[in-house]
């Protein structure tokens, strides 16, 4: 190794780079001592050194981890299911709520079993069909075959608490809603406690309104003109009420019949069994077991 004024810069660079071994370093230091004017050159070269402590943080480390990469989708899926379940429950509740909100209070009382009763083959033939909803401004239509239970429509309309509400629609509905519409459920209600079904007349909404407005001292014409929509609603309500009562009656009749049938069947079976017992034999299907006590 031979450091001289022509090649010393190269050695200085190597020294700054930390690439000189201890012997070379000693030699370079000795050379610089001999040439003190070159010390400045070393300092200048050293000033070009970059600071290794200078920090620049990579801001997306999370995207580089591979453990995290495999875990994250799992977590995401898991949360996805949870969110989906929560959303489904909320949607379901909201749906039920809106469905209930949309149904009128009367139609809510409509007994679902009545539909089944209607379809049974041995349903009584004397069920009178519900009055057509489109039947507007007609007189009261008897909804049930039991004429004794039919109330005059006038009294219902007169008794109906019609408030002088600005909304004719609400007046129309409130005139009918107070009518009792017990929900018959043949499966749960015990036989002797079946309520006496009273057929309510199908009230034409327009008639009810006319009566109500007359009672309030208003001109019937004004109300009728103002609220064609409410008339329709009242008609519908009246029609539904009639069909409800009719179906309730049909249901009760059905139930009575099946109970009677069942009872007579049971009695026949018991008698049969008693007869066999007297003969000291039991019949199971095609087999007959005879007892001999003696």
């Amino acid at each position: 190794m031979n450091i001289n004024v022509n090649n010393y810069e190269e050695y200085l660079s190597c020294y700054v780079d930390g690439e000189l071994d201890s012997a070379e370093t000693r030699e370079l230091m000795a050379f610089l001592e001999q040439h003190p004017s070159l010390e400045g050159a070393l300092q200048q070269l050293e000033s070009t050194k970059l600071d290794p402590e200078e920090k620049i943080v990579f801001p997306f480390k999370a995207s580089l981890y591979h453990e995290a990469d495999t875990k994250q989708p799992r977590l995401k899926r898991f949360y996805g299911i949870r969110w989906a379940a929560a959303a489904a429950v909320i949607l379901l509740l909201a749906g039920i709520y809106f469905f209930r909100m949309r149904r009128s209070p009367v139609s809510e009382n409509r007994p679902m079993p009545a539909y089944v009763m209607h379809k049974t083959p041995d349903a009584p033939g004397n069920v009178v069909p519900a009055p057509a909803i489109s039947e507007k401004k007609s007189g009261p239509v008897p909804a049930h075959s039991q004429p004794a239970a039919v109330k005059p429509p006038k009294s219902l309309a007169a008794a109906a608490p019609v408030k002088p509400s600005p909304s004719n629609r609400s007046a129309g509905t409130s005139s009918v809603t107070p009518a009792p519409t017990p929900e018959p459920s043949p499966a749960t209600i015990p036989i002797p406690e079946l309520p006496e079904v009273k057929a309510l007349p199908a009230v034409s909404g327009s008639v009810a309104l006319t009566e109500a407005s007359a009672a309030l001292g208003e001109k019937p014409g004004r109300l009728a003109v103002r609220g064609p929509a409410s008339e329709e609603v009242a008609d519908q309500v009246g029609g539904r009420l009639a069909s409800v009562t009719e179906k309730m009656a049909a249901g009760k009749k059905n139930l009575d019949q099946s109970i009677t049938k069942g009872l007579s069947g049971l009695q026949a079976k018991t008698e049969d069994l008693m007869g066999h017992l007297e003969k000291k034999e039991i019949r199971i299907g095609r087999f007959t077991i005879a007892f001999n006590n003696e």
Partner: peptide, 28 residues
């Protein structure tokens, strides 16, 4: 390695490219 070298590699690349998004892509 991510913990130890990501910052250093990013420093190395971004100082050369002088463009953060490009440097990020190269590191990734």
């Amino acid at each position: 390695c991510v913990d130890l070298f990501a910052d250093g590699l990013y420093r190395f690349i971004v100082k050369n490219l002088r463009h953060e998004e490009d440097a990020r892509d190269v590191v990734q």
